[in-house]
Design a protein around this nucleic acid. Sequence first.
DNA 1: TTTGGTTTTTGATTTAGGTCAAAGGAAAAT
DNA 2: ATTTTCCTTTGACCTAAATCAAAAACCAAA
Lengths: 186, 186
Amino acid sequence: MITDFLIKLVPFTCEELNDILPYFEKENVKKNELLIKEGQMCSKLYFVGQGIGRSYYLTKDGKDVTQWFFGVDNFMSSVDSFFQQSPSFYYLEVLEDSVLYSITKKNMDMLLAKYQNMEKFIRLLTIETLAKFVHKLNAIQFQTAKERYTYMLAEFPDISHRVPLGHIASYLGITQETLSRIRKNH
Amino acid sequence: MITDFLIKLVPFTCEELNDILPYFEKENVKKNELLIKEGQMCSKLYFVGQGIGRSYYLTKDGKDVTQWFFGVDNFMSSVDSFFQQSPSFYYLEVLEDSVLYSITKKNMDMLLAKYQNMEKFIRLLTIETLAKFVHKLNAIQFQTAKERYTYMLAEFPDISHRVPLGHIASYLGITQETLSRIRKNH
DNA sequence: TTTGGTTTTTGATTTAGGTCAAAGGAAAAT
DNA sequence: ATTTTCCTTTGACCTAAATCAAAAACCAAA
């Protein structure tokens, strides 16, 4: 749950938690629903309680490219859009019926100003996210299609057989035909 | 200068700045010097006052892969190693005689605890860095060698003709032969 | 349980960019 | 200045993965 996630990074006090948690609002979201579209401001930060989400964008020639998958117990948003209040480069979509906990930008800003621990939490969360992106970048930059898939299995062990193959292929920067052939040879 | 960089992101007060700035220590570093090696903890955060740096790693078959370039007025470090105090995956190297301003992890921690504005600054800095990495990832994930080079020219306009071509090629995930041919056809 | 729509697989062909090898250029070092 | 080392270019060839095109498998709804 959110509490565990919060205290894993920063030792929030009980009072702080009691004040913070109610700002997260439970939302049931149906499969294939969009949370934000390209160009919109991302006004909420989501925590995935159940289900799977992904961020993606469309290339100029209309191809759908998955940018990231968000599994259970992870925060989900278009990070820079949310915190910098810039138009999102991505669509945010839910791939299964999901339970999300959302907090608005306004409330988050309030909590950031009120609690230094919250500032610290978001700082550490961002650094963790950064490390994950760097990890993907290294996998993609110089590795073969098969090695990329191996990375994917390690990074998202529980996700890789619950989402369409095409989403995974585009996430890895390869075609779905290639990924299909890779899977055939184990 | 550092001051400008700090107040660009967060409205530090004069007192805060007067307290914070002296913790940055000026260092003259000669071309090709290493600031940290792979596996070491990154114990300092550097601000580039003059010169160029890069981070890189060696693949298992010994190839040198540039991960990032750091130009003037940018912070330079192995971010996650510095903040999470984990062993660095990268080497950090200076590519020209440079002037750096460094702050130790210990002093940074002290300032982070003392000033909420400092927490905020690092949070925003990290989000900015994250956005840059995401930008590179998108360029690398689905673009041709030529398009990658175009991205590089936009991201590092002043750097691209001051560093060896091989460093740029590996940064973009292509071979130096390919980059050389791209450059020939403008 | 048939129908229509996704997804995935398979095969044939093409191509961007990699690899290998060697020759030029530039720039440090002596 | 001239040697030595490093960096870049050029050419010939090769390969991993893309593209194109169908067929097969899977699902979901009526």
